[in-house]
Write a protein that binds this DNA or RNA. Structure first.
Length: 152
DNA sequence: GCCAACGTTGGC
DNA sequence: GCCAACGTTGGC
């Protein structure tokens, strides 16, 4: 089992939205970055644990824990001309973008803020904390994962 | 709203 | 294949 972190802007899709979704599940669509796509397509498996991170908001933080409940499928939003994430260059015969399905497992009683993460020496190497990091889907080591969970 | 970082695009 | 221009991300 692997560990991951996925970002979402809460104004677009928050942990509240996920909590309110049927079965507390959602398709993680809209990812339009090749590296992030490759992680979802090639390395994510059912049962993997995923930290949910709120970005571009007042208090950026890890807010909950999700699990992968279905592996990568073609991202339907890339093929829908009416969708804001439509990609005219994605060929329906060979879809360029994929999405996994995730389920909310846990809401953390207190969000683990970016500030908290940064102040923890044990998390110094975390990819999320690297300068210039913009990936919305990234791996987390088991040690980092356990450490973050311990802070919740 | 600013701006650094970085990915993508497209002309050559 | 290079690289400048441009767009996006995301913390502050």
């Amino acid at each position: 089992m692997r560990h991951w972190l996925m970002k979402s802007e809460p104004t677009t899709f928050s942990i509240d939205d996920l909590d309110a979704s049927r079965g507390r599940r959602t398709i993680w669509d809209g990812v339009r970055n090749y590296q992030a796509r490759n992680f979802m397509r090639d390395d994510m498996s059912v049962g993997d644990q995923v930290l949910l991170y709120h970005s571009s908001c007042e208090i950026p933080a890890v807010v909950g824990l999700m699990s992968v409940v279905a592996g990568a499928v073609p991202d339907p939003t890339a093929l829908d001309p009416d969708d804001p994430h439509f990609d005219p260059k994605s060929d329906p015969e060979a879809p360029r973008w994929v999405a996994v399905e995730v389920r909310l497992e846990r809401r953390f009683r207190r969000p683990i803020t970016l500030e908290t993460l940064r102040s923890d020496p044990a998390l110094e190497g975390m990819q999320l904390l690297r300068r210039g990091n913009r990936l919305s889907v990234m791996p987390v080591t088991e040690a980092e994962f356990e450490r973050v969970i311990a802070l919740a």
